[in-house]
Nucleic acid binder design. Structure first.
Lengths: 243, 243
DNA sequence: CGTACCGTTGAGGTGAGTCAAAGTAAGTGG
DNA sequence: CCACTTACTTTGACTCACCTCAACGGTACG
């Protein structure tokens, strides 16, 4: 096993609480301590599986480093990705609260580190903290779930637009501002992953990318993307030009 | 206003609690009494609106009679229906817990009766009943939300299959067994509603219906549908024949 | 009896899928 | 470190399911 991850393993959950956006921020110090002592940290290599569709949930997973892709195979055999989760975000909570098997598979897009908060701990925390419960109610209600989470799989929206929407969504996490209004991306996504996210085939993604390159809107070099003018992305998504 | 509905208006929530499947079944008698005294019952004519997309939630709505369609207009202007709700089922809870405006519009498919449980009541009930909270956590986690709730909008699934899936889903509510393995439906849905539910255009629905009729799988007379052999529906959905 | 909506039918276009094959990158073992 | 396997990516030719636009027949309702 690669030790590079475990060496910079975080010792306290506090260090993970990047901000108020994570659910645990509702907890008191003593409760964070419980979280801290009962959680189980695991490292995953790129491509590894955190949990599998149809597995029985063992608790809630908290990503502390790296990125994770949530995808599922639907009743008709199509692979669909519906979520990309990064540091200080939770996964697997939906199945936990649904009291049902995992509806999705979580795959490590990069080497990553994930903590499992066991069901037993979750129960104690939820019983003791109405604030945490309220927070999870809100999270669940806002989470679009294993469906078209990214609004990327709406019908009658051309792949071109969906692809550009995806870029805009990923900008916060993987985009770096360049000179003027240019942006550079380093995506942890293979073409197939992109395809699964926008609800298309890999071949179509390739072709659409080429189209965007021809129009000078986004230049792809493998997983590196150059967007010379961010405005152009918004234009495409906004007005949905008639070709 | 038509009085036929108000005349058979239910006086107690108890009479509405058709079974354990409704959230209120978690409540104690005294709590049901609170529900009973603070709820506001409203009657709606067919076509009426219970709440509108982007409205501020005022509580949770409980359908006591009739059927309601949940639909929304997405960012790209497409109308999509994602839920059909009937007696003893709740609507609007997602927005309530999300602490956000309604993500959908609720339209009465039939004349119907809906009770509003005001936010104030909800707060009191939730504060007093951990069981109710747990139940709502489960409901939210299981509810696919304003997305492809019926698995009917999956990509690469032909409209024909989606339409048949819809029939199978609606069988419990609107299907009546006939002789042998035949089923009759009386749907409260216009062609456009069906189209919005399966993610297609009304014209395409018409054409697909005609196809099903030619194959003797389902005969449509307006909103009345005859299905001579239920098995055939399962066959279509199951094996997704290669034409 | 007209207005308005719903439903059907037709002609025509096309975006994206499918299949197949070649090219490229990435990881494995000797 | 190179040869080999395996998986990912690109390209091309072809097909078709569904959309669009437009017109017309039905049906409900004031």
């Amino acid at each position: 096993m690669d030790e590079s991850l475990t060496s910079r393993q975080l010792t306290k959950c506090d260090e993970c609480r990047f901000g108020a956006h994570i659910e645990w921020s509702e907890l008191e110090t003593s409760e964070v301590e419980l979280l801290n002592t009962t959680r189980r940290t695991r490292s995953h290599r790129r491509g590894g599986t955190i949990f599998n569709q149809d597995d029985e949930p063992q608790g809630i997973y908290c990503v502390s480093g790296g990125y994770v892709l949530l995808w599922r195979i639907d009743a008709f055999g199509n692979e669909t990705a519906f979520g990309l989760v990064g540091p200080a975000e939770l996964i697997g909570y939906r199945s936990y609260f649904a009291e049902d098997r995992h509806a999705a598979t979580a795959r490590a897009l990069t080497d990553c580190q994930v903590c499992l908060v066991p069901s037993r701990t979750m129960r104690r925390l939820l019983d003791g903290s109405p604030a945490l419960v309220r927070r999870f109610l809100r999270t669940l209600a806002r989470d679009p779930g294993p469906s078209d989470g990214l609004l990327l799989r709406a019908h009658q929206v051309p792949i071109r637009v969906r692809l550009v929407s995806l870029l805009l969504i990923l900008r916060d996490r993987f985009g770096v501002r360049g000179p003027d209004d240019s942006v550079e991306f380093n995506l942890p996504l293979a073409r197939q992953d992109i395809a699964a996210l926008v609800g298309a085939r890999a071949e179509t993604v390739t072709r659409t990318i080429k189209e965007l390159e021809d129009d000078g809107i986004a230049i792809f070099h493998g997983r590196h993307v150059d967007v010379p003018h961010l405005d152009q992305l918004y234009e495409i998504v906004g007005i949905d030009e008639p070709v």
